[in-house]
Design a protein around this nucleic acid. Structure first.
Lengths: 103, 103
DNA sequence: TCAATAGTTCAATATTTCCGAACTACTGAA
DNA sequence: TTCAGTAGTTCGGAAATATTGAACTATTGA
């Protein structure tokens, strides 16, 4: 069974995106998700040396900023970046930020 | 007499820029400085309903992130966005973020 | 039913941010 | 020179936020 963990967020804001990506751990998570180009569960997408409650909180922030959406498949959560939605709202922004995220 | 308040920051990082611009007050300051296309002192560039110690702190963060540079002219500080330096380090980033900052 | 896995929630602690008060630095006027 | 006014910084405590371990829920497979 696949279902959404949270309803899709209505408004994606610039401040929300910047605040979400300003944290190195969250930027790393989004980078991982984009690079893999597919869904990943929370543990494999996030930094390993971090309490799982902290990791869970970072994913919540990313969800609430509208950057990712999460579906629950069995025991794990599958996360994916909402690239289409973000690009529709802020054309070029995500690409422009992530372009520099590996240096 | 004109002199630099702080030495130019060596490294401008993506995380630093995002963290600096993630704060609405600081984003607003950078927006003002870019729009005016000239130097402004701290009071006129920042939000008015804010303690001056808080405002001073925001300018410090912007300086330390390498986003602005500050010169002291007489009794006031003149601030300007380091557009050339930022564009050299992260081409297109600043423009891409500020493009969406007025919506 | 039970153990294992993935993630959330909660309460305590650690860290960061905000603000008022006191301070420094500069200017222009008396 | 003194003195008042302006612009900004620094500092200490209060308010807000982030991090964590422990306890919890939900799902799966044995």
């Amino acid at each position: 069974m696949v279902r959404f963990v949270h309803p899709a967020r209505q408004d994606i804001t610039l401040a929300g995106i910047l605040a979400a990506l300003a944290d190195p751990a969250r930027l790393m998570i989004v980078k991982s998700l984009i690079r893999q180009n597919e869904c990943m569960n929370c543990t494999e997408a996030g930094p390993c040396n971090m309490a799982k409650s902290t990791l869970s909180n970072h994913f919540r922030v990313l969800r609430e900023a509208g950057l990712i959406h999460t579906t629950k498949q069995g025991v794990e959560h599958r996360n994916a970046v909402r690239e289409a939605d973000i690009n529709a709202r802020f054309p070029g922004l995500l690409k422009s930020i992530l372009k520099h995220a590996d240096e």
